[in-house]
Design a protein around this nucleic acid. Sequence first.
RNA 1: CGGGGUGUAGCGCAGCCUGGUAGCGCAACUGCUUUGGGAGCAGUGGGUCGGGAGUUCGAAUCUCUCCACCCCGACCA
Length: 573
Amino acid sequence: MQASKFHLFTTRETPAEAEITSHRLMLRSGMIRKLTSGIYTWTPLGLRVLQKVESIVRDEMDKAGYLEILMPAVQPAELWRETGRWEKFGAQLLKIEDRSGRHYCFGPTHEEVMTDFVRNEIRSYKQLPITFYQIQTKFRDEIRPRFGVMRAREFLMKDAYSFHIDDASLDDTYWEMHRVYSRIFTRTGLSFRSVEADSGAIGGSKSHEFHVLAESGEDLIAFSDQSDYASNVEMAAVANLRGNPTEATEELRTIDTPDAHTIEELVNAHGVAIEKTIKTLIVQAAQDCKEDFVALLIRGDRTLNAVKAERLEQVASPLRFADDEEIRATVGAGPGSLGPVGLSLPVIADQEITLMSDFVAGANTDDKHYLGINWKRDLAVPITADLRNVIEGDPSPDGKGTLHLARGIEVGHIFQLGTAYSESMKAVVLGEDGKSHIMPMGCYGIGVSRIVAAAIEQNNDDRGICWPEPIAPFQLALLPMNAKKSQRVQAAAQELYSQLLQAGVEVFYDDRKLRPGVMFNDIELIGIPHRIVIGERGLDNGVLEYRRREDTENTEIQLDGAVDAILEKIGAG
RNA sequence: CGGGGUGUAGCGCAGCCUGGUAGCGCAACUGCUUUGGGAGCAGUGGGUCGGGAGUUCGAAUCUCUCCACCCCGACCA
């Protein structure tokens, strides 16, 4: 590509809206342009990267024998009503009405359309298992779009759906897909990790997320330093605790705490050790419970894991905290003075809570706390559950090693859906036994456009983007020095450019006749992994200058046989 | 959805308080000089001041209203 015929538009200044590195660099390098909130145009430069990612995904899916299709982006409401998601999906579903008042949505995902397709196409177990995929623009009306294409409303996604005669077949394809995903992310050149994940409201027995590791990631993942255990913190279990509480050494007593309505204030104002405090969280109870609310107990220095709490049968899902009025009406005291002693609500305690002794909690009377609380003597031992988030240094739940935390950007997610959709949509096949069978399904997503942002988030420096080679927009930049003046340089650059094209190198030839500094800065900003500089100086000695994006020193390449030497450098020869 | 903020040239901003008909830097265009890490000089083009309504002789500026965009908020007992 000749720069003079390309649309390269870099900026020195950063548009005010960019918050994170990848967003800033994508705007400065001119990869994307915002049309409106959460909706972006991919420029020729950005599109080259997007399509590299896309083609790696497509290639691996094809190799695995999955079949590419293209489903409509606009979907009729009737299909979504069949599964109940027209209402359940929530405000993220962009609903559209046509001229005659019929309802549609712009597809945020395609389980319904896919299942409808398959129930009409597939009749026999002999056609199973089968997996279809597509790479397509999706729309989710995010509550708060941000970070450019990282959390955009319109985005490019690869979604795949598998159909099976039984769960064993689903399990096979699921793990096969796990391997295919690992190959895909390996090929992009990114550092990633697969983790156990929450399958969410969709249900299903098994789910893994794939995360690109990056400091700025929105998700926290936990992994063991001595085993393969890796999990989203949402899901990461706290290792089972055994034992009994230590002996009571203190009397139960009440203190006045008008100045302490948070754990922090309690610790600071009354010299209580935070490990001796208990937080009492009042949450809405599940519908079939007798009470309206349930109390959850966790140690003062811990944080509640909402996913774990929602999974309790006594607790409403989604999790909802009682508001101040509800707490006052139920307990008779305000938040800030709550505790388990004398509480007339169902109580579920984090497992470590029942091992505590001589602990501190609110007295369910405004501005009062109990000190020296002990189980059995002062109150009954409650039922327990794993309620808290794991932290750095916790033992791994598989018993091997210690947990460490890292931040990740979710770029892939695979689910075993089971029959959640095929049952409500009556997607059945005839089995070997001559009877109808509901097909278990799997679904598997990859955020193609998000990978581009995640790649930058993981690979950048103060000069710009440092693309991993497999997804770089160009492999090599060719920069002539002073081409405007020097016929020699210009001729040599032209010649080399033609030869490199012949050799199949994706070369960006900067024939713009700009000052060198401008070219260097542009090429480094857009992150081309290799660069060749041609100048009078080098030509006098029969050499070119070569440098990798991440290097700070040049190396020389002999002009004779330069193409082969370059091919070797970029690993394409 | 709640709270906060911002809309002035392609981008980044000043001007608004105290009303008098719009400016700076970067970018773009022309010419000359310059040329190995974002050049210099001279000149040029480009603005419904987010939209609408109102107050006023006069509104970017004051008032009302609508819209768009950005930020914060779902771990609080």
